[in-house]
């Protein structure tokens, strides 16, 4: 009898341990990143790492200024948002408010398929289709640049933005809209002045989540960014992001070298940035849910 109870309690603890695995892995990642990244700062000052303008890890003496990489990541992230927000949000409003059921049946799978596209294939597409196009359109020496990366990251962010925004817009209570119609507003005015503002916090959380995805994306920017570790000052310039730097250089470093440590240090920055994006997105989404429900 008591045995039964103890057994059940033990089982509960057993499952609890598995539930905590995500936290454990997350902690493991933090530990690994810091253990392998912090040794860099025995030789390099944190400020020199974060704000140094020269990334020459293989020179003698090497320089580990990650600022151009951080800026590179921010540039393509912002670029991707410029591409993805109008398209993704527009499509979300269209799907939830205007589209006929048949259009919905076409558009929703379209967005889902886009979400499933492997990033390496998009990167490949950027290299063989978009790059030549940009090259001839703008008369550039190469089409591998921040614009190309922004377009691809934008395409990758669209599904996130569209599907979450659409959920939020659909969740706006009918009563809000009916009140607006009752006041004589037409459908467009209702969408712009009532529905979208009511879903605003949910939509912002979708956008921030999309940014988090974009800043952490590796393969596309590695393939189409163009690779120059300089601070970009235009979208037609090559960029090199934090992720691309790690991916491109880790293979050539010796374990325990400053170069090795520096790539983990970049990963720390990246990790913290995406963590912040995700936490902000979660908080906003929670507020949205509370307000709507």
């Amino acid at each position: 009898m008591i045995l039964n109870k103890t057994k059940e309690k033990l089982l509960e603890w057993f499952f609890l341990a598995f539930a905590f695995l995500s936290n454990i892995f997350l902690l493991g990642i933090v530990i690994v990143l810091f253990k392998e990244g912090l040794p860099l700062f025995k030789d390099i000052k944190v400020a020199d790492f974060l704000f140094g303008r020269h990334w020459y890890p293989t020179f003698d003496p090497p320089e580990f200024g990650a600022f151009p990489l951080i800026m590179g990541s921010l540039w393509v992230t912002i670029g991707s948002i410029i591409v993805a927000v109008p398209l993704g949000l527009g499509a979300a409003i269209y799907i939830s408010e205007i589209a006929s059921p048949r259009m919905k049946e076409i558009l929703k799978p379209t967005v889902e398929v886009l979400a499933g596209f492997p990033s390496v294939v998009l990167g490949f597409f950027g290299m063989v289709v978009i790059a030549p196009f940009l090259q001839s359109a703008f008369g550039l020496p190469t089409g591998l640049n921040a614009l190309n990366a922004s377009i691809l990251l934008g395409i990758m962010a669209i599904p996130t933005i569209t599907s979450i925004s659409e959920d939020c817009i659909s969740a706006v209570p009918r009563g809000f809209k009916e009140a607006s119609y009752a006041l004589g507003a037409n459908k467009w005015e209702t969408i712009i002045k009532v529905t979208v503002p009511a879903a605003f916090s949910g939509i912002s959380s979708a956008v921030i989540l999309g940014m988090g995805r974009a800043i952490g994306e590796t393969m596309t920017v590695l393939m189409v960014g163009g690779g120059a570790a300089v601070i970009p000052h235009g979208f037609l310039q090559p960029v090199r992001t934090m992720t691309a730097t790690i991916a491109a250089e880790m293979g050539e470093t010796a374990i325990g070298s400053d170069h090795y440590y520096s790539l983990f240090a970049i990963a720390i920055v990246l990790f913290i940035l995406t963590l912040i994006f995700n936490i902000i997105a979660d908080l906003i989404a929670q507020r949205f849910r509370k307000r709507i429900v």
């Binding site: 995500s22 936290n23 997350l26 493991g28 990143l33 990790f271 995406t274 963590l275």
Partner: peptide
């Protein structure tokens, strides 16, 4: 509190960039 903590773990693990997983796997 327990379940909130677990959910935070799941949500943030999902947001870790794939290249960071690569580094984690490499080191570990």
């Amino acid at each position: 509190k327990v379940i909130r903590l677990i959910r935070i773990g799941i949500s943030n693990l999902a947001s870790v960039p794939s290249i960071v997983f690569g580094l984690f796997g490499l080191a570990l």
